Amino acid sequence: MSPVDGVETMENQEAKFGFTAFAEKWNGRLAMLGFVIGVATELLTGQGILSQIGLL
């Protein structure tokens, strides 16, 4: 079973460094996940992120 043409999977990625499309996709996905977790935490606790860590 081979991956669909044009679709990159983690198995066929070489070790690359720098601003590659693969790294930027994962960076964006993790940033979106962090943003959603931050908003959900604010909604559940009623405090902003800065208040939660004691800066306000």
Score class of each variant (00 low, 15 high):
P3N: 10
M32K: 07
L50W: 09
N12R: 09
V4I: 03
V36H: 03
R29S: 07
M32D: 11
M10K: 00
E42I: 09
G6S: 13
T41W: 00
F22W: 12
V4E: 15
F35W: 07
F22Q: 02
G6E: 14
A23M: 10
F22H: 05
F19L: 10
G6F: 15
N27I: 07
M10S: 05
F17H: 05
A23D: 12
M32H: 06
G6T: 11
K16I: 02
S51Q: 12
S2H: 05
V4S: 14
G34N: 12
S51V: 01
N27W: 08
A40I: 05
L50S: 08
A23Q: 15
R29A: 06
G48Q: 14
A21N: 10
I49Y: 07
Q13P: 01
F35K: 02
M10W: 02
A21I: 15
G48P: 04
A15Y: 05
T9C: 13
F35M: 06
F17A: 04
W26M: 14
K25C: 03
P3W: 04
E11N: 03
L44E: 04
A21C: 02
I49E: 07
Q47L: 12
T45W: 10
F17Y: 09
F17E: 08
K16R: 15
N12H: 03
K16T: 02
L56C: 10
M32I: 01
P3A: 08
F22V: 14
F17T: 01
F17G: 05
Q47V: 04
V39G: 01
L33V: 08
A31V: 10
G6K: 11
K25Q: 10
G46F: 05
E24S: 04
M1G: 11
D5Y: 12
G28I: 10
M1A: 15
F35P: 15
G28E: 13
S2Y: 04
L56Y: 08
K25Y: 09
G6I: 08
Q13E: 08
L50P: 00
G46Y: 07
Q52E: 12
K16L: 10
I37Y: 00
L56V: 14
I37W: 00
A21W: 05
G38L: 05
E11P: 01
A23R: 13
F22C: 01
M1D: 10
T9S: 13
A40M: 14
F22L: 04
E42V: 13
V7Y: 15
R29T: 11
I53N: 05
A15T: 11
I53M: 12
Q47K: 05
W26L: 14
Q52I: 13
V7L: 15
L55N: 06
E14M: 02
E8W: 05
E8A: 06
N27V: 09
G38R: 11
F19P: 00
G38F: 03
A23G: 06
G54K: 00
G38W: 01
G18W: 04
E11I: 01
V36Y: 05
T41Y: 01
I49S: 12
G34F: 06
A40Q: 11
G54E: 01
F19Y: 03
L30A: 04
E42Q: 13
K25E: 13
A40F: 12
